[in-house]
């Protein structure tokens, strides 16, 4: 279930070295990958650990970005306060969504969260005086922080490191175990004394909190937000990243975000048919490694070394 400590340390060291070797543009791409890794992992907290697959996390992520840019540019609030508001906004939205959705499961949960996400998108598109309509909001937050591409990467990497650790602790905590229990059998959890909807609500809100942090980073990274950030495609692409990395692996988020964004970058400058290439890649992954890249790697490791795949023996 978990990567062991050497892997995690190696990964962290690798991420720390990225800006030292890459040219500035690729540092931006790496920054983006890190931000989307957090979004992807937040989706995985729900999809992989509670078994509820959400299609509204783009909306939660984007709402955070909207709140940051709006409070910073329109209210003129200091950036730390704006950022806190962004995370709070996303968490509250997630709490609201949770209250409406946690009593459903399976395809109903998927569709209900999809509809909730669409409502957010519709509001961002239509509430022009506040959201700027389809043109979105623009600020000079990043410029006012005076961050170079490398400086921003360093800040983002630091935040992502802390958030990743927090998410890891979250899914490995006693509470995280209850989520896995819910995924395996809700009826049993209830008879053991668990209030399943309450646990799902907490998990949903926490996932929204993490997605909100990703949204704050994205707001700073782009200095811009528009309905395309909260649209369905954003939620879907986050979910695809989670699936590509491996649902229920948490750290698969890094792999999924890397594969999708790097592929998008590489292919879109070669052919305008890049969406097709992405689609085919996704299909190939679904056929040959439906458990995702990390999931597949772990399976292969288990086969060759007979390692306990769930790491319970730790």
């Amino acid at each position: 279930m978990m990567l062991s400590r050497p892997y995690a340390l190696a990964g962290a060291a690798f991420l720390a070295c990225v800006p030292l070797v890459l040219p500035s543009y690729y540092v931006s791409v790496a920054t983006q990958i890190l931000i989307f890794s957090v979004l992807t992992m937040s989706i995985d907290v729900l999809a992989g650990f509670t078994g509820r697959t959400p299609l509204c996390f783009g909306a939660i992520f984007g709402t955070s970005a909207y709140v940051v840019l709006y409070t910073f540019s329109v209210f003129g609030w200091p950036w730390p306060l704006a950022m806190i508001c962004g995370v709070l906004g996303a968490s509250l939205l997630a709490l609201l969504f949770a209250a409406l959705a946690v009593r459903t499961s399976g395809v109903y949960f998927l569709l209900l969260t999809l509809a909730l996400g669409l409502i957010v998108w519709g509001i961002c598109l239509r509430w022009t005086p506040v959201t700027g309509g389809e043109n979105g909001l623009r600020t000079e937050l990043r410029q006012s922080l005076g961050l170079s591409a490398r400086g921003l990467y360093a800040c983002v990497a630091l935040v992502v490191g802390v958030v990743t650790f927090a998410m890891w602790r979250f899914v490995r905590s006693p509470f995280g175990l209850t989520l896995r229990g819910i995924k395996e059998g809700e009826g049993r959890m209830a008879s053991l004394g668990y209030d399943v909807p309450l646990h799902l609500t907490i998990a949903f809100t926490a996932a929204g909190f993490f997605a909100g942090i990703a949204g704050v980073l994205y707001a700073v990274f782009n200095d811009f937000v528009s309905p395309s950030t909260v649209q369905l495609a954003q939620s879907v692409s986050g979910l695809l990243m989670a699936i590509v990395g491996g649902i229920g692996t948490l750290f698969g988020g890094f792999v999924g975000a890397f594969v999708i964004i790097a592929l998008e970058q590489a292919v879109s400058s070669v052919t305008e048919r890049w969406p097709m290439v992405l689609g085919l890649t996704f299909i190939a992954i679904m056929i040959f490694a439906p458990e995702g890249v990390i999931g597949k790697a772990r399976l292969l490791l288990t086969k060759s070394h007979n390692i306990d795949p769930d790491g319970v023996g730790r």
Partner: peptide, 30 residues
């Protein structure tokens, strides 16, 4: 109606914490 993907210890932990507040430890050690 057990938690098939989990270990015996994890099943037992879930059973043991069902009635205690420690199930809400969000970031604690399991």
């Amino acid at each position: 109606n057990l938690f098939g993907q989990l270990s015996v210890a994890e099943n037992m932990r879930l059973a043991a914490r069902g009635l205690s507040a420690s199930k809400f430890a969000l970031f604690g050690q399991d």
